[in-house]
Structure formats: structure tokens, C-alpha cells
Amino acid sequence: MFQKQSEQGYNAVVDKIRMKTLTYGEKTLMVEFQMEKGALLPRHSHPHEQTGYLVSGRMELTIDAETYQVKPGDSWCIAGNIEHNAVILEDTIAIEVFSPVRTDYLPLKS
């Protein structure tokens, strides 16, 4: 699958956070998150392994009981079923990959 860059297809996740599925295959799904300064991603977990890369901005990412100050170029991996949350300190863009594919993040078919 190949996807061209587009400003369309973003969906609200929570207040000040929106996401767009960039591409996906049989085993992985890649998402871009755009997060505004002051956004709070509530503590949650899911069965998917989640790896991420901070493109721009700054955030505090808590994985289980450990909190990290995340800056551009930093990356992370969160095992499935581990609780995590984030506080967005600046306007931020992150790319994350989920495995297995998160069916709730699949684009709606027209």
C-alpha cells in the first residue's frame, strides 16, 4: 500500500489531539498524531504494541510508572496492555506504529 500526503482524514481523539492513519498492512498500522499544547492524553491501555517517534514539539510520556521528557528525535515502545498517558507541553507531532493492526484506527471505507 502507498499513500500520498494529504491534509484530509484527521479525526479527533480527545480535546486538542487529532490523528490520521497514514498506512497499514496485515500486521502493522502507522498513525500521525497532532497534539496541541496543553492537551492531555488520558491514562489507558490496549493489547497492541505501540512504537513511536517524536517529530516535533515536547511532551511528558508516562509508561507504567516511569515518566519521560520527550523531545524531537526521541522514540519509545510500549508493550501491549501497559498503561500509559501523555501531557503535551508544546504543539507536537508524533508518528506511531501499532501491532497488530488497530481495527478501530482503520479509515472508514466510502
Rank of each mutant, 00 (worst) to 15 (best):
E66A: 00
A94M: 02
K71R: 14
V101W: 10
V13C: 05
K71D: 14
G52S: 09
M35A: 11
H46G: 05
T103S: 12
H84Q: 06
L61N: 02
G38I: 00
G73E: 01
P42E: 06
T92Q: 10
R102M: 00
L22R: 13
G80C: 03
Y105N: 12
A12I: 14
K71M: 14
D74Y: 08
N85P: 06
V55N: 12
L40G: 00
H84A: 02
R18Q: 15
T21Y: 02
I82L: 08
P72Q: 00
L29C: 06
Y68G: 05
A94V: 14
S45V: 00
A94L: 03
E36P: 14
V97R: 13
G52P: 02
G38H: 09
G57E: 07
K27A: 01
L61T: 05
K20M: 01
G25R: 08
H44S: 03
V70F: 04
M59C: 13
M19E: 15
G73A: 10
F33T: 13
E7Q: 13
P47H: 11
Q8C: 10
T92A: 06
K4A: 09
G38Q: 07
L40R: 10
G80M: 04
F33Q: 09
P72V: 04
K37Y: 02
D64E: 13
K20V: 01
E90L: 05
E83F: 04
L61S: 02
R18K: 15
G52I: 00
E83S: 08
L41V: 14
T67N: 06
V97H: 09
S99N: 10
R43P: 05
T62R: 10
D104N: 12
E26V: 12
H46V: 02
I78G: 05
Q69V: 07
H46Q: 15
Y10R: 08
D91W: 04
C77D: 04
Y68E: 01
L22N: 05
Q69A: 05
P100L: 03
E7A: 09
D15Q: 15
W76F: 07
V97S: 08
L22W: 09
K27F: 05
E83T: 03
E90V: 02
D64W: 04
M30L: 02
G38P: 09
G73Y: 06
T62K: 13
A12S: 13
Q8K: 15
V31G: 06
I82E: 04
K16I: 06
P107Y: 01
R18E: 07
Q69Y: 04
L54P: 11
L22M: 08
E36I: 07
T23M: 11
F98Q: 01
R102K: 14
E36L: 13
L22P: 03
T92Y: 10
T28W: 09
A94F: 00
G57H: 11
D15I: 01
I63Y: 03
Y53K: 12
Q3G: 01
I93H: 14
K109T: 13
M19T: 12
L29Y: 11
D15S: 12
E32G: 03
V55S: 13
T28D: 07
H48C: 08
P42K: 12
M59H: 12
Y53C: 03
L89V: 01
